[in-house]
């Protein structure tokens, strides 16, 4: 009885393995549902709530005839510090929003993770910069506060704006990778189907249509890889963004070629 049980189990194991293999093969050729790209790619900047009326308070104080010189300076300085402080806090909130969005990006692979870490480090530096500038405000006078505002403005133009572009581009790029994976699965399926039909009866139109789709997809993947390299090297954001857009355009073109292939296949199927 023990011996018969062992033989039966061995036979069942062999059968289960083949069932499992076939199930795996079935799952592999069935494309996973496409996740729609996240609409949170462009990080929305926080509304600081400051208006021209707030800034106009300074002018009003300067032209108030009822204030003495000392009172005018004191009041103006207080308003300037309050406004600059509020502006810096708003800018810090922007950095935090970016950090959260970057942390939530669907990163896959060591190279992408490395870029993410690098960008996180630079955002941390930005947060520290704002904290230091806020600290300088405490002991600043009017001209000192103006100088702080100028320094922050210059830093934002020279350092923060490029970083913002690179972070947004990286988040956009990570969102594209799922599309490329899906397209690869689709390409593999299409190749199998085309090979089948070609082996049954050579069809020039079908082969040409497939070759066009394959070439387009190859271009898309190559441009996608170049975009990743541009992000890794911290190239200007307009360059990496251009590569990202070109890769997406090529991917879109690939799918137009897929449609052409399937149209031909439909004509070859038995009616």
């Amino acid at each position: 009885m023990k011996f018969s049980g062992i033989i039966t189990v061995a036979g069942m194991c062999a059968g289960l393995l083949t069932v499992a293999f076939s199930a795996t093969a079935f799952a592999a050729v069935t494309p996973a549902p496409v996740a729609v790209a996240s609409a949170a790619t462009v990080v929305a900047l926080n509304d600081c709530g400051l208006t021209a009326d707030d800034v106009a308070q300074i002018g009003a104080i300067q032209s108030d005839p009822t204030l003495s010189a000392t009172e005018e300076i004191t009041k103006e300085l207080a308003v300037r510090k309050q406004l600059i402080g509020k502006t810096i806090s708003c800018a810090q909130a922007d950095v935090q929003s970016l950090q959260k969005a970057l942390a939530a990006a669907p990163v896959s692979g060591d190279a992408a993770a490395g870029i993410q870490t690098q960008l996180q480090g630079r955002l941390n530096d930005a947060a520290i910069f704002y904290t230091l500038e806020l600290g300088k405000l405490n002991d600043a006078g009017i001209s000192g506060s103006e100088s702080i505002a100028r320094d922050i403005l210059a830093w934002r133009a020279g350092t923060y704006a490029p970083l913002l572009g690179q972070v947004n581009n990286f988040i956009l790029w990570t969102g594209n990778q799922n599309l490329f994976s899906t397209a690869q699965t689709r390409m593999n399926q299409t190749q199998q189907a085309v090979s089948f039909f070609e082996s049954a009866s050579a069809n020039t139109d079908l082969q040409n249509a497939f070759d066009a789709a394959y070439s387009s997809f190859r271009t898309a993947k190559s441009t996608n890889a170049n975009a990743q390299a541009a992000l890794a090297q911290s190239l200007p954001s307009d360059q990496s963004l251009l590569l990202i857009k070109q890769s997406l355009d090529a991917l879109s073109d690939t799918y137009q070629k897929f449609f052409a292939v399937t149209d031909i296949i439909k004509t070859l199927l038995p009616q």
Binding site: V29, T30, P31, V34, A35, V36, A37, A39, T41, V42, N168, N169, L172, G175, N176, L179, T182, A183, R186, Q189, T190, Q192, A193, F196, L241, I244, K245, L248, D249, L251, S252, Y255, Q256, F258, F259, T262, I265, K266
Partner: peptide, 27 residues
């Protein structure tokens, strides 16, 4: 293997790419 000629699946995938292109242009 008939899934390769699944029009609904192809359209959904193509649409997802178009959405991402719009996001890139918006950015």
């Amino acid at each position: 293997q008939y899934s390769v000629i699944d029009p609904n699946g192809l359209h959904a995938e193509a649409q997802a790419i178009d959405i991402q292109i719009q996001l890139a242009n918006l950015d």
